[in-house]
Design a protein around this nucleic acid. Sequence first.
DNA 1: CGTCCACGGGAATTGATGGACT
DNA 2: AGTCCATCAATTCCCGTGGACG
Length: 317
Amino acid sequence: MNEVTDALSPIEDGQRAENCFLFGPSGAGKTTVAKAAVRELRKEVLDVPHAYVNCWRDYTRNAVLDRLSRDLVGAAVPRSASTSTLLERVHRNFNGPGVVILDEVDQLRETELLYDLHEFRGLSWIGIANDEVDLLAGLDERVRSRVSVGYRVTFDRYGEDTIAEIVRLRARSGLGPNAVSEEVCETIARLVDGDARMGITTLRAAARKASSKGLSNIPKRLVKDAVEDAQIEVRQKTISKLNTHQRALYEVLQKEGRLIQKELYARYQETHSDPVTLRYLRENHLPKLEHYNLVDVEQHGGKKEYRLAIQSDPVVV
DNA sequence: CGTCCACGGGAATTGATGGACT
DNA sequence: AGTCCATCAATTCCCGTGGACG
């Protein structure tokens, strides 16, 4: 947190901040830290232009710029404008130092975007990714040499004691001092494998369970089920964000079990009233389902077998 | 080998939008 | 106001490459 704050501090003097990268496993708090740092900054400097972009959802240059034109400079656009138009619009309306959070930057397909950002006078960014090596490998040479990164912060998975602490604090402030025993906090911590977000979701699920049974505290025996509930909850949330194509694919797999890509496509075509091409599916929807951890893919000789993911936690977007 | 499947580059088509010109 | 034209992102089409398998 301190490092990110440092990186941003030049903005307080009206200067451009340092770019920085945050690396670490999911649930380690990267996004939370980035957002909090920006929030802090805005207490010091009111009206700093800022934006949050999830590069998984918005993975093209165009999509990111579109978001910036809305969120960073508040220039509402009717709908899909051309990249050059957007570029120009942001250029014109952006002034003074500002920050953009690029969550899941490793998913950005057109990395020239980083260079575009560099061109906006006074704009800096916080890039978030799981793995430093993957990210840098994916970066274009040209971009790598031109874009400077002042700070790199690596996050570790939370230890169990830390998660227990986080859960305890949440429990106290949200549920009262005695609703959750120390033992329950530790149990939750043990089960969520370093993922703080999962810990908190589990706590919420447990609280809901307990209160529906008319209990005033959370007994330990509810915890295990609560973890499952939390996983289901997160998954539901992810599924609800799928578009019709992705959902059709998901449902086909739900019905049919495991399928080769080609067959999956065939079933999908039968299901969906307005199917897209296999080419396009491969490019967009299938990787998306994989990334969300909703489906598992297994290389089976030259074939690729898709099936619903077994137990792993879906990604929250 | 010949075949099947997956991949992904790149050209072509589609569809929306915004002038320019009448 | 109406027609034509250019532009550009999204999507499709076409196809060569390469691994696996019999």
